[in-house]
Each structure stands twice: as structure tokens, then as C-alpha cells.
Design a protein around this nucleic acid. Structure first.
Lengths: 218, 218
DNA sequence: TTCAGAAGTAAACCGTTGTTTGAAACTAGT
DNA sequence: ACTAGTTTCAAACAACGGTTTACTTCTGAA
């Protein structure tokens, strides 16, 4: 989709219509204006991308380390996917740099559920002695490691193209991020639980889990 | 600078000149065209940003853990800096999403030296038993954790604004990334050195260090 | 068959943006 | 004071992009 390649601003209605074999005026007729078309595309993407096939990571009976690796692999696959396969990724990229009013909905529909799920996985890895904010930061450390390859891909390409994970071969990267994270969480947990007596000071369990629905809903 | 706020494409010569109190035609007279102005701005930024004040991290007599924390703190400060203070950051953001011919030079001048330096610090943390690629990936894990807060700031804001480090208070984030990384490297190193007999199989020391100057120079 | 409303279309409209132009203002050497 | 070269500027130019318009074509119920 043109929006994914060029971003909202640079995508021209004329090019979109040329590729789609449609008339320029049809956009304004059916979607009121360019922004209306954009939102229509977004909801279409949302439907496309439901039901991710990462069953392993979702299976709560599997041990956390395996679930983490499955999640990392799944996320790498999305990060490296072609725009055709996962147009939302590129669109999200643009929204980061210059948000449009559509970002709020994208976050609520796509990001927040995934963030909460990953946070609960990180809770399993870190144990109950970490605060909500500590847990959130650890969660962001994981996704940050992976998203780096998306956001900085052009720089990586210039630095050393062999470091960029390839669509058909990124197992080494999956294993690195997984093991880096597992080593970190295990180390942090061991230190924390040796510092504080494991009886008391488990954190206030009434405090909400990370990434709960915030007050600012659209 | 307008380029930093809006990106190359969306920055209009008229707005730039209005803010600068100059005439629109002056740009074409002095810099040939818009792209010439852009490159002039970039070299100006380069000169502005020389000589970073992270002496502690650079001091190789200090122990690696302290240097890492100093580096993380320095990088967070840049990531959270206002555009006025560090315009190159925002410009680099844009270049990631849609690179212009100027990106190559930015990488060689700014990114590669820093990447090599950080990789050598990571070498100190991880020891000699890790390959060049493993070392590179660990390096990227560190910067990925920090850059996440820049590239995803708008999403973080929607998810839970309290998680976004503030310009005047990001020590908790610095400590998290530092400790997360130290725990990861310590864990990985301990595992590696217990697996392999510490005598042999230290990696081929003739293999070049990460982020060496690649063949594709502009 | 008729015809009212929906859908599609080419052309025009209007604002914006990078660039050019031609003349005026300025500078410095003689 | 004169002049050659440089710098500045307002206006115009040309291209582009989103939107509107006026018209045609299509569709389906009466």
C-alpha cells in the first residue's frame, strides 16, 4: 500500500488511484477526504492482522523461557516482514515520527494488549519482587532490542550489512535477544531475592499491572 | 531548526527563511538548492556536536560497569534532549525512515566511531570468548534499549505517560538499562566460560573487531 | 421503458512549494 | 565619483496535490 511506503503526507491520492486503477475524485466521494481514506486503510489492516500465529508463546502452560523465545521469534518475523505482508509495521513507523490522530486508536487496538501480555510474561520471569515500573522497563528493554533492527535498519546497513537479520535467517538474532533477556532477568531476580528477605516486601500486589488502560482513551 | 522538527521533505524553505529573517531566494543563491542547504545544516550540526562531555565513560582506567553507566546516562541525555540542544537526533530519526543521500556521511562521521567504542566496552564486559557477531548483537541490545524511548516515545505516551523518562529525571531508566545489561553480560559470560574450557577456543583474535570501516564508503 | 439516485470521471480550482528572474542595494578597488 | 562584482529582494513561474464541480454512466425499482 502506498501509505506504508511513503507515509501519510507523501502518499499522493493520484498515485494511490493510479495503482488502484481508480479515479482521484472517487476518494473524496467515498471517504470524504484523504484522512478518511487513511483511516479506512488502517481498519482494513487491523482486520488483516488479527489472530497472530504465535500459539506457543500464548500457551501459559509452557515454561516462560520457551514462551519468551517464541515471542521474540514472532516479533522478529513481523519486524522483518515485507510491507505487503505486514503493512501496519511501516505505517506505525511513520506514526512514531509524526503522529496523526489515528495513532491513538492503533495503540489501543494493537499495542496495549500485546504490551500487557508481554509484561505478564516478564512478571513470570522476574518474580513478584519487582515493582510495576521496574516490570514495565524490563518489558520495554525486550521490545527495544528487537525494534532496534526495524528503526535503525538503514543505519545498520551502512555500518555492517551482515549484522542485519535476514528474512530467511534470523535465528541467531532470536537466540541472542532471548538469551540476553533471560540472563538479565535471572541475574536481576537472583540479586533482588538475595537482597531482600523473600518473606516480606513482595511488592504491593494491589498496584495495577503495567500498561493498564490509561485514562486518556479517545 | 526547522529541518529537525519537520524533516527534509516537510520543511519549507519559506518557513525556514521566515524564522531566519532571510529571503527565500537567498537559499538558492547561496546553497544552490534545498538539498544544499540541508547538507550545510548537517555539517554545522556535526561541528556543534563534537567533543561530547562523557569523560567518565571514555576513561579506560575506570572499571567497565561504571563506564557503561556513564555511557547510558550520556545517551539518555541525548535521546531526551530538546531539538535545540541536539538537532541531529531528530534529523537522524527522519533519515532512518526515509534516508537521503546525506545518511551515509552521518553514519561514518557520527555513528561508526561511537559504535566501535561501545563495542570495545562490551568486549570488556563479555570477555574474549564471544565472536564478533555476538559482540555486535550485544552492543545493539544496549543502544536498542535506549533508542526505544526515542523512536517509540509517542506510543509510550499513549500507553502510560509515566513510563516515559523525563528530561529532568531519568536516573531510574539509566540504572535499569545499566543493571539489565550488566546482569545479561555477566550471565552470558559466566555460562560461556563454564561451558568451554577457558584454555582454548578463545575466539579467533585475528577476526576484526565489530563495526570496522566497511567497504561501502561514500 | 422510465427515471431518480448512486457511482464514476475529466477538467478545473486553489493553495502551496521549490526555483528563477530582473532589478535594486551594497561593497570595494581605482 | 565611477564601476565591476556580489548580495538581497519582491515578484513571478512552473509544477504539484487535495478538493470541488459539472457532467456522464450505471443500477434497480416502479
Amino acid at each position: 500500500m502506498v501509505f506504508a511506503e511513503k507515509g501519510f503526507r507523501e502518499a499522493t491520492i493520484r498515485e494511490i488511484c493510479q495503482r488502484a486503477g481508480a479515479n482521484v475524485a472517487a476518494v473524496n466521494y467515498h471517504f470524504r477526504d484523504k484522512e478518511g481514506l487513511y483511516e479506512a486503510v488502517l481498519t482494513a489492516c487491523r482486520n488483516d492482522h488479527r489472530n497472530p500465529e504465535n500459539h506457543l508463546a500464548m500457551d501459559s502452560t509452557v515454561q516462560p523461557a520457551v514462551r519468551l523465545e517464541a515471542y521474540v521469534r514472532w516479533m522478529f518475523r513481523r519486524v522483518l516482514a515485507l510491507d505487503r505482508e505486514f503493512p501496519l509495521g511501516q505505517i506505525l513507523n511513520r506514526e512514531m515520527i509524526e503522529p496523526t490522530p489515528a495513532l491513538s486508536r492503533i495503540v489501543e487496538v494493537h499495542i496495549r494488549p500485546e504490551a500487557r501480555w508481554l509484561a505478564s510474561l516478564m512478571r513470570d520471569l522476574l518474580g513478584p519482587t519487582f515493582s510495576r515500573d521496574e516490570l514495565s522497563r524490563a518489558t520495554m528493554s525486550v521490545v527495544g532490542q528487537i525494534l532496534f533492527y526495524k528503526h535503525c535498519s538503514s543505519v545498520i546497513h551502512f555500518l555492517d550489512e551482515t549484522l542485519m537479520p535476514r528474512r530467511d535467517d534470523f535465528e541467531a538474532h532470536v537466540r541472542h535477544v532471548t538469551e540476553f533477556t533471560l540472563a538479565a532477568t535471572a541475574g536481576l531476580r537472583a540479586r533482588r531475592e538475595s537482597e531482600t528477605p523473600l518473606t516480606a516486601t513482595t511488592f504491593d500486589s494491589s498496584s495495577p499491572e503495567p500498561f493498564c488502560k490509561s485514562p486518556n482513551v479517545h
